[in-house]
Amino acid sequence: MKTIVLLSEANDPISGRPHLSRLEAQAIGLAANLDKTPQGLHVGPSEEGASAALGHGLSGLDVVETSVGEDPLPAIAGFLKNALNGNEPPALFLCGRRGEGGLETGIVPYLLAEALDLPILADAVAIRPGEVQGTLVVDQAMAKGARRRVTVRLPVIATVHALAPPPQPFAYGRMRRGELRRHRADMIPAAATSAESTTPVVGSHEERPHRARPKLMRTSGTSAGSHNLHVGPEPDEAARLILAYLEENGIRRYGND
């Protein structure tokens, strides 16, 4: 199954230098289980951070050079549309769930899905081929450690969650062996139709230094009034009280349902 991992322009949260986002490195790990030669795509002014992806297991990386500050979406959509119409179309596109060091809205995969008219699945933690040819089984992370196992028809876009298996370690030799293909942006037929190119990622805004704001305190919902104290109940009575309290507050439900 041909897989393409989309690599963003990520910056290290501490040093601010370009690096490979961890989510994308994890995506490469997932892709390597499905495809022996996973490919990458990076659109942006420099490939300084993204080229490390070769060292984490990508076998080839396409870099489309655009100017600083240019919207990468038309070029990504154009490149992928070309690939989908080619003779060996990719079946799976993986992205990180949020960017790093930029606007961090996590909306690019969705705009891309809209532009390419592909289904999109969020927060994948495990991916394997389905039993039927041309399908894929994706485990999505949900709250409280639950997973949603979805069988989906290919091709599909999936975003990767931080709970996915850790990335393969970086290997310098692997990075040197990897194939880096550079393309010029004007060689890519911009597939951008109306919607996706005009959708702003964030409205017009002014940047200012961040001010930390305290979160709401999580206090217990019990005041002295609703405090219920039971001194020396029978153990069976105590057990019943505990289970009743848990069920009343919707923490757990016990019994055969």
């Binding site: 609703s226 105590a238 009280l241």
Partner: peptide, 19 residues
Amino acid sequence: AGLAIVQDAQLVMPALQKL
């Protein structure tokens, strides 16, 4: 606590398990 039970935990645990 929102629900406080003054009782020996060693007795409450088996009772809970049984229930």
